[in-house]
Amino acid sequence: MVTILEAKDLTKKFPVQTGIFGSRSGSSVHAVDEVNFSIQKGETFGLVGESGCGKTTVAKLILKLLTPTHGTVSYYDKDIFDRSFPTNEMRKKIQLIFQDPYSSLNPRMTVYDIIGEPFDIHKLAKGEEKKKRILEMMKIVGLAPFHLYRYPHEFSGGQRQRIVIARALSVEPEILIMDEPVSALDVSVRAQVLNLLENLQKKFHLTYVFISHDLSVVRHVCNRVAVMYLGQIVEMGIVNEVFDDPLHPYAEALLCCVPIPDPRSRKSREILTGEVPTPIDPPNYCRFAKRCKYAQDKCYSGNPPLTENKPNHWVACYFPVNKISDREER
């Protein structure tokens, strides 16, 4: 296994500005706080969590669209924030797919212009060669050749997302960062796009970073998953292990809240009370302690580090949920 992307102590704080002139108040939003993970070549790594947990900020840091407060991201062991790092080369290798295909396509550009633009920017092809490659990309994502000179408004949501995917793939990237790629799509179209992404991964040996709040979709597409809460990774591991035997009380509660499309699985579940607190100046103890039903004194004494509880299954909790002993108690 080759590590393709690695984040070390990745932290991003945004200063809170107050007043008309935006004077700094000294507080800051801890959007991403000491996040560590590594992504292997060819895998699908999921980042999940509720809104405001920092998953999109992580994506922006990986893409070098934001500079971290401290910590690093390395791409093949090279620090991407280093001055000598070839950013343009990396931008070709790491591509991005956004949630909303309605706002990520320029309405004044035809499909030809949209998919062709990366060829111009990276000076990969022009003229007939460019057109040939655009048509090839369109075929790969399932668009017909007669779509070439159409505008985005002439397409449905699913087709637009195919255009976005074709644009991302046109420069032969290694990594696709996907921020809620199917959340805006209808149910019947979502499966088409998910299956397409799966086939493309096999065909081009792509590495996916899949960001979503939809845990059902994450379970379907990801190999490994990291659960985020208030800017920190609280649990990380193989998707089946994390989803079947969550160790962190937050992961357990989150998974319990996801409805299952089966009326017989309806159960009176323990619902997490309260809401995600503000990420402005979070406490220096476990950020979940106040909502946690297992919280003890120790939880208020310090911030639990992310440690390997079982092989390849990491958790940031002093008292991880142990399913087996729980069952015995009952």
Partner: peptide, 10 residues
């Protein structure tokens, strides 16, 4: 119904 991913099983 068979096109929706589920959280409880893959």
């Amino acid at each position: 119904l068979s096109s929706i991913p589920r959280v409880d099983k893959k």
